[in-house]
Computed example of a mutant assay.
Amino acid sequence: MALLLPSGPATGTRGPGRLTVAAQRPLARRLTRAGESDGLAVHVLRYRHRGWNGPAAHPVRDTEWAADELVRRYGDVPVCLVGTGMGARAALRAAGHAAVTSVLALAPWLPEPEALLAPDPVRQLAGRRVLLVHGTNDGRTDPDLSYRLAERAKKLNRDVCRFEVHSDDHGLRQHRAEVLALAADFVRGTLFGHPFARPLADALAAPPPLGLRMPLASGFGQSLEH
């Protein structure tokens, strides 16, 4: 089961626009096609509120509700949270849900922690397989913040890795084909036990900083199943 969590702004209590959910369609189609033979079900979450909204962290509450709903509908099935931008932060934060076995965070929006506030927690990532993907030219959220979070998580959980998409920005559009292929490989591997592609397997096995600064090679996935 793959639950896709869209991006969104820092604040906003209105419902998300149609484009927010529509932006998830390429990823949803790619995952559906890759997991078709395994019976993968892919759902896109529509938040109640479009923004994160500070301590309320509305997308996290919505994600936890959605995970409960998936368990109610499908029974005891493993869930991979796949988030983009703000949704990636929600995925990382909601990873402690009992049904969640893996987390994919694409260009995670991780605001700079204020001096008197603790950074986002990582203990909920223990026992999950975790992949972060970040463009090195991301102008909306500093890639170093996702590295630092991955570094803290790796100390608690060896099954954490991070890929860097060189020269790409927050939208990860320049190397979209490679990013989608990496996402599909991770989801199929974590949910159905398929062997990971060599770069992903190497990233998971490598110690920091190598496994947390793995470059996403041009052409990744061209030899994989489409």
Rank of each mutant, 00 (worst) to 15 (best):
T136N: 04
R50K: 06
Y147L: 13
P208C: 13
H170N: 05
G87N: 01
E114T: 13
G35F: 00
P26R: 00
A57S: 08
A88T: 09
A90W: 04
A197H: 06
E164V: 12
A99S: 15
A217D: 13
G83I: 00
L212C: 10
P55K: 01
T20G: 07
A28V: 00
H226I: 06
G39I: 08
Q174C: 05
R89A: 09
Y147G: 02
D138N: 01
D168T: 14
L125G: 07
A150F: 08
R148D: 15
L145M: 12
R188H: 08
V179Q: 11
D168K: 11
R176E: 15
L172H: 11
G211E: 12
L149D: 11
F220V: 03
L224F: 04
V179R: 08
G211I: 11
G39K: 04
F220Q: 05
T32V: 00
H226F: 00
E69H: 12
G135W: 06
A105P: 12
E114K: 15
S218G: 01
A126R: 15
V21E: 13
P143T: 05
L132A: 14
A107R: 01
R188N: 15
L106R: 08
D144V: 15
L180A: 09
G12V: 04
E112G: 01
T84D: 01
P6M: 00
S223N: 09
R18G: 12
R152W: 03
F186R: 14
R128P: 02
V60A: 08
S7Q: 13
F192P: 00
G135C: 01
D159R: 10
K155R: 15
S167D: 13
A184C: 14
A67Y: 06
D68Y: 09
V179H: 04
L116G: 13
P209K: 10
R188A: 12
R72S: 13
L204M: 14
N137T: 11
H58I: 05
G87I: 04
S146L: 11
G83A: 05
T136F: 06
Q174D: 13
A22Q: 12
F196W: 13
G211F: 11
P78G: 00
R73E: 10
A203V: 04
H226K: 05
C161S: 06
H194W: 08
A201P: 02
A107D: 00
L110I: 08
H58Y: 13
N157F: 09
R162D: 01
A126G: 12
